[in-house]
Structure formats: structure tokens, C-alpha cells
Design a protein around this nucleic acid. Sequence first.
DNA 1: CGCGAAATTGACTATATTCAAAGCTAGTGG
DNA 2: CCACTAGCTTTGAATATAGTCAATTTCGCG
Lengths: 247, 247
Amino acid sequence: MSQKDQQSIKPVAELIPAGCSVCGVRQYGICKALRSADLFRFANSTRRRKVAHGETITFEEDEVVDYANIVSGSVKLTKLLSDGRQQIVGLQFAPEFIGRPFSENVTVSAEAATDVELCVFPKTEFEKMLREQPDFEHQLLEQTLVNLDDARTWMVTLGRKTAQEKVASFLLLLASHIGKSKEENTGHKLFSLPLKRADIADFLGLTIETVSRQMTKLRKTGVISVERNLEITLHDARLLKQLAGDD
Amino acid sequence: MSQKDQQSIKPVAELIPAGCSVCGVRQYGICKALRSADLFRFANSTRRRKVAHGETITFEEDEVVDYANIVSGSVKLTKLLSDGRQQIVGLQFAPEFIGRPFSENVTVSAEAATDVELCVFPKTEFEKMLREQPDFEHQLLEQTLVNLDDARTWMVTLGRKTAQEKVASFLLLLASHIGKSKEENTGHKLFSLPLKRADIADFLGLTIETVSRQMTKLRKTGVISVERNLEITLHDARLLKQLAGDD
DNA sequence: CGCGAAATTGACTATATTCAAAGCTAGTGG
DNA sequence: CCACTAGCTTTGAATATAGTCAATTTCGCG
């Protein structure tokens, strides 16, 4: 809280790099495992990068840069079949980590679904920190386990749910990650879709048309309302959960 | 490195617990990260357990036992919807680890697909070892990352592949994990199905009948032959790969 | 050999896809 | 400010793929 006072009793925990002190995700994700000294060292090699909506998150070749944290925005992870069919295998939001440590051949590509702000760090520095700071690696393990849980949960959606249930599941997923409650609950949530219909289809294993038809059905039954094709108001979370086949 | 050797030349790596010395997976999976002393300590709290084909791998309640390595056999991980629909979200083979560290509410259940032999260890001892031995935790992270890659690869199969491609993908997955080459290559592989038709269907997001029809089609085109519904000979791996939609 | 469980096969149906057309929306420039 | 365009989205009609229901066959095991 106190920033620059002279003879203050400032606790060590507040001695953090200037960049990190204003960072919205500093105390979340993998960074929360870093203490003052390490954070200073690590922060030296990080840099902010803005990626526009729709851009692929490649990392410049010359700089050996391979990992990043999402500071704001949504990132989609996709996989391709040789004939062009696509599947989105993950949606990631702030403050999650992106990248695949300890492996050369990664077969997912990351694309900014919305405008995205990243905190990028070089592979070498990151892996060094992992080696030296067990807490840091532990934090990465925790997140990886959550990602694995999420992936497996989504496999049920892909393999066993109907189109209706898939779309409902998708809306619930968004509501839980980026939904804002308007007034006091009643299950009302508000959020804007980070994905177009084509991407939603690729996430759900459906076609654009089927997604559209299901959205229409949800609108007509009053579960949600839609503004300009992307601002969603969720009116009845309980019903949506039922429609999603959960509970 | 050198532990207690006076003038001996015996390498430390061979000073391992009796149980581990005959263990087929000792130098694989997470165990390979353990050095002699730690292995001795850890081995004290492990025990072998045989689980018959079809049995759920529950861990006795009184004993707080939560994790295991697969020593032999295949384990299926399943998730259920409330109305009974089921999805298999992972197949695991020796020497993989089973369990979900650091979380109380796990929603996948593990069942022995074949007769299985496990090396079981108590939650407390395991988590203590993770804390004290960064190499051990690192090994777990590596495996979790591989599991995540596998899950995401399978999501493409579930979301975007046809029934034909799904069945072909399944056979390829088995061939790569448990297939034995008979003579010198030519792509011939031999393996027995660890799953019945119903489970294959639950793994692929299909019905029993559809799986059966696709298997018949593969038999008739000569890609595979089938003995007693479960012994598979793969004749043409290259063609199967094409049919799987990969390459 | 005979029984029950599992797998296959067939006929029909339903759900989601495909193909095609029309309606929106956001952004541009007159 | 409005008209125009390009890209998405929605809607409709026909089709195809996988699902359902039902009958048979095969397999595993006493």
C-alpha cells in the first residue's frame, strides 16, 4: 500500500518490481510462487506484449521466447487435421500460463481470441527458474493438473453430449470464467463471447449452423438474450445447467 | 552420489529395495527420479496390489491410500453424466501414475480394464516425497504434461473425426502402447483389446453397434484381422493411419 | 452341450450436416 | 448521415451419418 516512504516498516512482500506491482495477475497463477528476490530477477527478462484479436501467438524466432502468462483477454488453443478440420482444445483466460515446457514438438497453436495482453518470458530463464525454485514448478504442476481436469471434462461434452447440451455447456463455461453478475445474483450473468460462431463450432465439434440453431432456441426459450451477436445475458443459470446435461 | 562406500565399486544405482529391484517399471515413470536413499524410504510405504479385470480401483477408506503406479495391465479412466451416459477420458498403461494430487474432489474414476498390478502408496508419504524431492515432482509434471497432450489429441478425435476415423485412431493408439511387432516390421503389429465393444464405444463417443460395423469394415478391407473378438493383428499400419485421418 | 453375455447384422429413424439463400452488423466512404 | 459492402449469422430444405430397436450369431465357460 505505502509506496515510497523513507523509513517505513514496509514488509518484504511489497518489494516487487515496478512492472509487477501494477500487474493484475501478479498474485495469481505461477507468479504467486515467486518471492521478492526471484521476482526481481525473473521480471528483468519478461516483457509485455499486446496481441490483437485474431492474431496467432507466435513467438519471434530470433528471440528464443517460448512462454507467457495471459495478463488480460482470452486465448484459444487449436489443433488441426491434415485436411483442415479444426478442433479447439482449450480456452485460456488470465492469469493462466501458455506454453509447453520440456518439449520441442508442440502440436497445439495458440491464437488470441480477444485482444490479449501477455507477459512474455524467455525459455531459458523460465526453465532455470523452474529448476531453482521448486515452489515455482509446483505452481506450474498445479495449473497443469487443472488444465488436465478441464480437458477431460470437455471430452465428455465432445463425446457424449447433444448439440443442445454442448452449446449450453459452452455458455456455462464462459459464464464461470468471464461472467459478471449484474445485480445481486438470481443467477443473472453478463459476458461477451470471445469467439465467433465458427470458433464455437470448432470448440464443440459442431457446424456453424447447428450452433446458430441452438443459440436461437436458447434465446426463444428465454434462457439467454443476445445483443449484437456477442453480448450475452444469462437469465437462468439453473435451467442452463440442466440443459447442459450436468446436475 | 557416493553414499556410504568405503572402498566398494558397486554403483549406488544398484542399491535399491528388494521389491523395486524386480519391478518392471522401476526405471520408468516417476520412480526413475528417485535415488537409492529416497527409494528405500519410499518403498517402505508402498505395497503391491492386484486388481481383477473389471474391478474399480478404489482405495480402501481406512488406509489413506490415494495413489499408485501401474506395474502391468491397462486402466481406464471414466466420467459419468447424471443420466448414465459415460465417457472414457483416458487409457493408462504401465508404467504410468494414477491419482489426482492436491485435490479432494476428483471426478474421474479408475477401473481395471485388464487384470492389473499396482504399486500403491499412501497419500501422505507421496506428498511428502513431492515436497522434499524436486526431481520427483518434476517427473510428475512431465507425466502430467504428456497426459494433457494425450487428452487434447483425443479431443480432436472426439470432436472432429468420423466413426471410421475414430475406430482407426483407437486401434492405432493401442498398437503404439501395447502392440508387439511379430516379425521384422512391415507394420505388422499384434495386440489384444483391453476393452469390450461397450467400452470402446464409450471411449470414442459412439454406440456399440457403430463400433462393431466399423470393425467389420476394417476386417473386410484386410487392414486388420480379429481372433475371438479381441486378438487383433494389424496388417497395414500405414493405411490405418490414413483411415484415422492423421498424416 | 448348453447357457448367458457379448458381438454382429439388418431395417428404420433421428440428429446433425450440407448446400443454398436471405438477413444482420460493423465499418467505409461519399 | 446514409448507402454500400464484406463478413457473419440465421434460416430453410434436403441429405447423410450415426443411433435405435430388434433379431441372430458367436463366444466363453461351466
